[in-house]
Design a protein around this nucleic acid. Structure first.
Length: 932
RNA sequence: GGGUUGUUAGCUCAGUUGGCCAGAGCACCUCGUUUACACCGAGGGGGUCAGGGGUUCAAAUCCCUUACAACCCACCA
């Protein structure tokens, strides 16, 4: 006996993964990076072993943070993507699942800066280049963890092709695009308001800012007119910025202020004179209807400033301190300055009102500091042409979205997209390859900026002029928008069989930040959309539908669940009850269900193997998998200085006796080497039908990304059908070749979702060869449909007998007698086995005991009269129930419209059902009369 | 203000173009240990598919409407 009585995932998973990896089972045969190997393989291999590449199937992994640990969302991502990949691998597609690691610019930077602070240092003690080097080392120390975790989840990705977001090929591609955009005039340097975090001292894209509703105040401040006694009262939530005011705006239709437009006011506490302008921006119904305009520190005011050509005065510096203000306020923080200004205004009698209000305030998504809209020179992409092209392709339906509505949502977003700020003031990222002319040099004929990729230099000499490198780095989304292009090694003018990707799978929360940008960039760089389909998953919530968060303490760690229940259990669990785009709950219970299914399958296999062993020619077989691979020999020790070197093949794996050769010459099983099977009994025809139809259902479900349904289909096939009925029937009639074949098919069908247990079983079975991961998707099984249907009837009989046993008072089983009933007559042994009846035998022709409540069946339980009487209540209930069903059916037939208009086959079904119910009720009544 | 989603059994969710007595897993109740599995087997209870209206022979499914819940975008001086 090779199978333990319960499946222990911990004993198999890491060894199995190591074996797959050692066999290069995850690498596609032909990718550009492996073209040389493939050519060599083609030379060495005999032709029939090389399967021509008909279909390619590629997915790029959304790169997890190289510096972090995987969370539950990654767990879901891997479960989804790896199932797709493994499914297509079984279909013999040329699959390429490309793994990645993200430098996660800002995220990593924050972690690094925090660790730096702990040592008592700050970033300002180092040059940009030093900092970059330091973070690189910092990340190198950490990374590797993430890759181990991907392996634990079973991700069958092409490790040879792992791409890090700071790899040379990424940087090269990003620079090419940037240069192209620069030449196309899509890049501009602009002084614009940016979302600036004073703590991190960097700007953010709009999308990275979190708006929160907060309690605050609305103050009314009197601005005296420059000439005369009058004053105008403005409403503001930010009195400290009044030093930066360039105007006061009122609505052009606001009669109250009509005669003031064109006059000037004296700014309190400063005395500077500013105009009163008419602008639609001022809402007459809000506050006093007059609003101060601070173009350098407010988005709307910036626009107003443009319309009226107003001065932009920055009064808050990069550190969040006051500047360009009267001596008294200089150097104060915005908060201190606000207090002081309010006090001084109050003292001067200019503070007229203070109202509590609720308003939304922008916060840094990382440190929660209030975002200061700040005037800064930054690099921007003019997104209009990019967005328009993207919309055009989307409207043509070139990308199919799951869920479907996200396509519309995306178009909606692109239509209102504002220019994209791609500068970040953090050293950890890809340097912007632009150099600025020496400010001392005033030669107007020279360009202000020049493009050059020699960013390793801080300065550049050209024609005797010195240029200084821009110190900023790219927004990470700018580089990651190239992900499908870079990972698939797309190149201008060359064939790229793996681009566009078949599907982009990622979180619905980054539809705008990432998916939108990949689409724009893909079209801009390659001329075609970067993927054919997009599957977006929602958030994984806790069991009560609450967002997981550290503060709530409801975070589930995927790796802990893998450790506890196994990788397969986790994957099955997280896919259960989940559909595209929705935020849905998840709990440990669903993982347990997955674990139970794995164990069920394990025991099914154990049982099948037992049947084979005890009924077959004994002896032959191959060594037990667990004997070859000692469980204590773990793989993947990060052993390399740069964190990304390949792991050595463990000796245990080298000892394995698999038939296939290691390397690129992947042996492909083009014609399934499955035994010819034939069916000898109803149950066998039935299971062949069920497997075949489940196979078809699965294919449709995978096509439509209905993962949860696929899992359910498999659960029901394995548990309710294969184990509960087929195996039970095989305890009576054994068909060894069919047992083998059907078990193999089931292993293949489940393999995409539960790769480890299925492979572990495959390795433990005595007759299988090679590795399951390399097998091909099962072909349909042949069966006699009539015979399969007869088994359905037999199942009805068995179920009804079991139900009747349950209903009879006392826990006793009674002999089953059959009259003129060939189905039961022909299958007496099986019926006895399945019902647990003490005996099954022909009746003497006269009804006695309890009749089994099935139409067209002459079956009795040989029950003594006393018990029959006790049972009569249940019988009455049964008669009533059938009567109700009959009434409903009759009512339908009484409706002439139904008979006329409904499809004929439905009407016929109803008629048949009525006949059956009538006959049943007739029999039941007779039986009741007999009892009474 | 604009957009999106959800409301189906105690819980978490399926239900593909309208059509067999509305399904699954978990939980619950009863019974059980027979050639694998108690991470088990057999049987069972439980839903007027959020409310209202409409279209249809037929609606959880299509249309309108109300309520509740969640999310995204924009704005909030």
């Amino acid at each position: 006996m090779k199978f333990a009585s319960a499946y222990e995932p911990g004993e198999y998973e890491s060894d199995i993964y190591a074996a797959w990896e050692a066999e290069k089972a995850f690498q596609p045969k032909t990718t550009k990076s492996r073209a040389k190997n493939a050519r060599k393989a083609a030379e060495n291999a005999s032709e029939e072993h090389i399967n021509p590449v008909d279909h390619t199937y590629s997915i790029v992994m959304p790169p997890p943070n190289a510096n972090g640990n995987l969370h539950i969302g990654h767990g879901l991502t891997i479960a989804l993507e790896d199932s797709l990949i493994r499914y297509h691998r079984l279909l013999q597609d040329e699959t390429w699942y490309i793994p990645g690691a993200d430098h996660a610019g800002f995220e990593t930077w924050v972690v690094y800066e925090r660790s730096l602070e702990k040592t008592g240092h700050t970033r300002f003690e180092y040059t940009r280049d030093e900092l970059y080097k330091n973070v690189w080392d910092f990340v190198a120390e950490q990374r590797g963890n993430m890759e181990l975790q991907l392996r634990a989840l079973g991700a069958s990705c092409a490790w040879d092709d792992l791409t890090f977001t700071l790899d040379d090929k990424v940087v090269k591609r990003v620079y090419e695009t940037f240069e192209k955009m620069w030449q196309d005039g899509l890049i501009y340097r602009g002084e614009k308001l940016v979302n600036y975090c004073p703590k991190h001292q960097t700007a953010f894209a709009d999308i990275e800012v979190e708006h929160k509703d907060e309690k605050g105040f609305l103050w009314d401040i009197a601005y005296p007119l420059a000439h005369g006694e009058e004053e105008i009262i403005v409403s503001t939530t930010r009195p400290e910025t009044l030093f930066g005011d360039s105007a006061v705006a009122v609505n052009p239709n606001d009669a109250r202020y009509a005669d003031l437009v064109g006059q000037t006011v004296k700014l309190p506490l400063s005395g500077r004179e500013i105009p009163i302008v008419a602008d639609e921006h001022a809402d007459p119904t809000y506050g006093t209807g007059a609003v101060k305009i601070t173009p350098a520190h407010d988005y709307d005011d910036f626009e107003v400033g443009n319309r009226h050509d107003l001065e932009r005065i920055r009064v808050i510096d990069d550190q969040g301190k006051m500047q360009n203000v009267p001596e008294k306020y200089l150097g104060l923080t915005t908060e201190e300055c606000r207090k002081q200004v309010l006090k001084d205004l109050k003292d001067q009698g200019l503070l007229r009102d203070e109202k509590r209000i609720l308003h939304s305030v922008a916060h840094c998504y990382k440190c929660d500091t209030v975002i200061e809209p700040t005037l800064k020179e930054q690099w921007f992409i003019d997104v209009e042409t990019l967005a328009k092209a993207a919309i055009r392709h989307l409207k043509k339906g070139e990308i199919k979205f799951y869920p479907e509505n996200k396509g519309k949502v995306l178009i909606n977003y692109l239509e209102g997209l504002k220019d994209w700020n791609i500068s970040r003031q953090i050293p950890w990222g890809i340097p912007i390859p632009m150099f600025r002319k020496d400010p001392e040099n005033t030669d107007k004929n020279l360009p202000e900026w020049i493009f050059d990729t020699h960013v390793e230099n801080q300065t550049l000499e050209k024609d005797g002029v010195t240029y200084y490198r821009d110190e900023d780095t790219f927004d990470t989304w700018f580089s990651s928008s190239h992900w499908p292009i870079v990972c698939t090694n797309w190149a201008e003018g060359e064939e790229s069989p793996f681009y566009p990707l078949n599907v982009m799978e990622t979180g619905a929360d980054i539809l705008f930040a990432w998916v939108a940008r990949m689409i724009m960039m893909g079209i801009y760089v390659t001329g075609s959309v970067p993927f054919k389909e997009v599957y977006l998953h929602g958030l994984v919530l806790d069991s009560h539908g609450q967002k997981m968060s550290k503060s709530k303490g409801n975070v589930l760690n995927p790796l802990e669940l893998v450790e506890k229940y196994g990788s397969d259990a986790f994957r099955l669990g997280i896919l259960r009850g989940r559909s595209a785009g929705l935020n849905q709950a998840f709990s440990e219970d669903s993982v347990k269900t997955g674990r139970n299914l794995c164990n069920k399958l394990w025991n099914i296999s154990r049982f099948v193997q037992e049947l084979i062993d005890t009924n077959n020619e004994a002896g032959e077989g191959k060594p037990f998998f667990a004997d070859i691979l000692p469980a204590n020999e773990k793989m993947y020790i990060p052993d390399d200085p740069d964190g990304f070197a390949r792991r050595a093949v463990p000796p245990a794996v080298q000892r394995m006796t698999f038939s296939r050769e290691t390397g690129a010459a992947k042996k492909v099983f083009t014609s399934p080497a499955q035994p010819n099977v034939s069916t000898n009994s109803m149950g066998e025809d039935w299971i062949c039908r069920e497997i075949t139809s489940a196979r078809e259902d699965l294919m449709a479900e995978m096509q439509g990304y209905r993962f949860a349904e696929a899992v359910e289909t498999l659960h029901s096939l394995i548990w309710d059908k294969y184990a509960d009925w087929f195996l039970e029937s095989q305890k009576m009639y054994k068909n060894l070749p069919l047992l083998k074949r059907t078990l193999e098919d089931i292993l293949k069908l489940l393999h995409p979702f539960a790769p480890f247990v299925t492979e572990a079983i495959w390795q433990n079975l005595s007759w299988t060869d090679g590795m399951l991961i390399d097998q091909s998707w099962p072909t349909p099984l042949e069966y006699d449909p009539i015979s399969a249907e007869n088994f359905d009837r037999l199942r009805e009989v068995v179920s009804e007998v079991r139900r009747t046993y349950q209903d009879i008072p006392g826990n006793k089983k009674y002999p089953l007698l059959f009259g003129d009933d060939s189905l039961v007559d022909d299958n007496q042994v099986l019926v006895q086995k399945l019902t647990g009846a003490p005996s099954v035998s022909p009746s003497d022709g006269t009804p006695k005991g309890i009749r089994i409540a099935l139409a067209n069946r002459e079956l009795y339980l040989d029950v003594d009269e006393k018990t029959v009487k006790e049972y009569s209540d249940a019988l009455d209930e049964r008669i009533l129930a059938v009567g109700r069903e009959l009434n409903a059916l009759n009512a339908r037939m009484m409706n002439p419209n139904y008979v006329d208009k409904a499809p004929k086959h439905l009407v016929k079904e109803t008629e048949d059902a009525i006949k059956e119910k009538e006959s049943l009720i007739d029999r039941l009544k007779k039986e009741r009369d007999l009892i009474q």
